[in-house]
Amino acid sequence: MKVKVGKSNLTFEGLVTKVKRLYLAKDRESIQSHIRAFADRAVKLTVCPECDGARLNQAALAARIDGYGIAECSGMQISDLAEIIRDLKDASVGPMLEGLRDTLESMVDIGLGYLSLDRESSTLSGGEAQRVKLVRHLGSSLTDVTYVFDEPTVGLHPHDIQRMNDLLLQLRDKGNTVLVVEHKPETIRIADYVVDLGPGAGMAGGRLC
């Protein structure tokens, strides 16, 4: 709301809103100790007794498909959920099921089958977050976009690298530019162009090849 103080017109967002934005919306471990102490005194965090932390209302929690509820599906490993979705058949939501199957199976293919959909994104490692974004962009209708990935194969088993390569090529084939910083020969080999910084990197400055 607008507040007039003397000759100045100021915007006051409200005490509760400001406290939420400055102190509560941030990661607890990243804020300064005296701010954390204030937040601990001002706020008590508990699991909601109504939804048991599912963040859904009772109508949504009551809905079941083949005996499975939304919260149960979100809490499953993606690899297990992909199997359940694969077996679902309903012509009225066919396109949606097909898109969901493709997304889940792509996540399994690039080694993310152990995650669950209710996992908070802030708890993902850098490599996991990059791979999740890659799958998400595959389902996007955007084209002529430049994507930059920093070692997306980190932590992948050798047999999963080819699957990652296939996703990178799919993203390129949709009409996008894909720049990948990578050291794995298997991924470098699929590139249309390879830019090599070196030999003589570091103090020697490197040589662009």
Rank of each mutant, 00 (worst) to 15 (best):
K2H: 09
K7P: 01
K7R: 08
L10F: 05
G14C: 08
G14T: 08
L15Q: 05
V16S: 07
T17I: 06
K20H: 02
L24T: 05
L24Q: 03
A25N: 15
K26Q: 14
D27I: 06
E29N: 10
Q32E: 10
S33A: 10
S33C: 02
H34E: 13
A37Q: 07
A37C: 03
A39L: 15
R41E: 11
K44A: 12
L45E: 15
L45M: 14
T46L: 12
V47M: 15
C48V: 07
P49E: 08
E50G: 02
G53L: 10
A54V: 11
L56E: 01
Q58S: 15
A60C: 12
A60S: 15
G69W: 04
I70K: 03
E72V: 02
C73K: 04
S74P: 03
G75I: 01
E83Y: 12
E83R: 15
S92G: 09
L97W: 00
D102L: 10
E105N: 11
E105D: 09
M107R: 01
M107G: 00
M107Q: 03
D109Y: 00
D118C: 04
R119G: 01
E120P: 05
G126P: 08
G127C: 06
E128W: 04
R131W: 02
V135Y: 07
V135H: 07
V135D: 13
R136D: 09
L138K: 03
S140R: 08
S141R: 09
V145K: 11
V145S: 05
T146R: 07
T146Y: 03
P152M: 07
T153E: 08
T153P: 01
T153R: 03
L156R: 00
H157K: 02
R163V: 02
R163H: 12
L169Y: 07
N176L: 12
N176W: 08
V181A: 13
V181S: 12
K184S: 12
R189H: 10
V195D: 04
L197K: 05
G200T: 08
G202Q: 12
G202D: 13
A204M: 11
G206D: 08
G206N: 05
L208R: 11
